[in-house]
């Protein structure tokens, strides 16, 4: 309950800041760079593996249902763009960035640093959360794009070496339409916005020493991953209804 209230407060504050355009551009850029930079290697490596696994799995399904592989590349690219790319990038973001934020803000909370800010008439949400919130949305978009590309190319290698599908057959844009791209972008933006929101709220609600920080961090990763999955289902469904 307290979590919902905190999230609500942060949401209204951030929307208010967005309306008034009170976001330091320079600080935002720095945060985008930092968030992106910190997660790029992790997201890249993981997405490479996900691409390879995905092609194996998709190929085995196609073998079972329609015994030929000609649409493998197109289906991979489409699945990555609208589904696997954004959701995996969102989950990895929750893992890498979300826990980091919860840990950072949680340890500031339990050592009274957040209260010290309040006494100095600084709104901790404005100082700590807002830059991260918008920076992470932007970074999430970038990471999803880079991750999807990496996954596609690693999948292409597997298709080439494992299933003898030549790269120029594999690299087919046949299935990808604008709607898929829009859906992917929407998902990445929404995930990038909610992951820091939930994680920071968990951090602010930390109580009681290092145990409290541990609990807050755990809660942050579970809640933000779960919310990513829920949102993914919702957005996919909305897309389905609209099309």
């Amino acid at each position: 309950m307290a979590l919902l209230i905190t999230i609500g407060q942060m949401l209204s504050l951030s929307l208010w800041a967005l309306v008034r355009m009170r976001l330091g551009g320079r600080e935002m850029l720095r945060q985008v760079y930092e968030t992106g930079n910190r997660s790029l290697l992790f997201v890249g490596i993981t997405m490479a593996f996900i691409g390879m696994i995905g092609v194996y799995e998709l190929a085995s399904t196609m073998e079972a249902v329609l015994p030929e592989y000609s649409t493998l590349g197109a289906a991979t690219l489409q699945g990555l763009t609208r589904e696997m790319g954004p959701i995996m990038a969102g989950l990895l973001l929750a893992t890498r960035v979300g826990t980091g934020m919860a840990a950072e803000i949680g340890s500031m909370q339990v050592s009274d640093q957040v209260d010290a800010m309040k006494l100095s008439s600084v709104d901790p949400v404005e100082l700590l959360v807002l830059p991260r919130l918008f920076a992470t949305s932007v970074a999430s978009l970038g990471l999803a794009a880079v991750g999807t590309t990496i996954a596609f190319f690693s999948g292409m290698c597997v298709a080439w070496l494992g299933f003898s599908i030549l790269p120029d057959t594999f690299m087919s844009l046949r299935f990808v339409v604008t709607a898929d791209l829009v859906m992917g972008i929407c998902k990445a933006l929404v995930f990038g916005f909610t992951v820091p929101l939930v994680s920071c709220a968990c951090g602010f609600l930390a109580t009681g020493g290092s145990e409290g920080v541990g609990r807050a961090t755990t809660r942050a990763v579970v809640l933000s991953s779960f919310i990513v999955i829920v949102e993914d289902a919702l957005i996919t469904y909305i897309g389905e209804v609209l099309s």
């Binding site: 050592s111 009274d112 209260d115 010290a116 309040k118 008439s121």
Partner: peptide, 13 residues
Amino acid sequence: RTRIGLQFQNFAL
């Protein structure tokens, strides 16, 4: 609050 100062028990630096 700008007229209040508190030194926290565990410093809060």
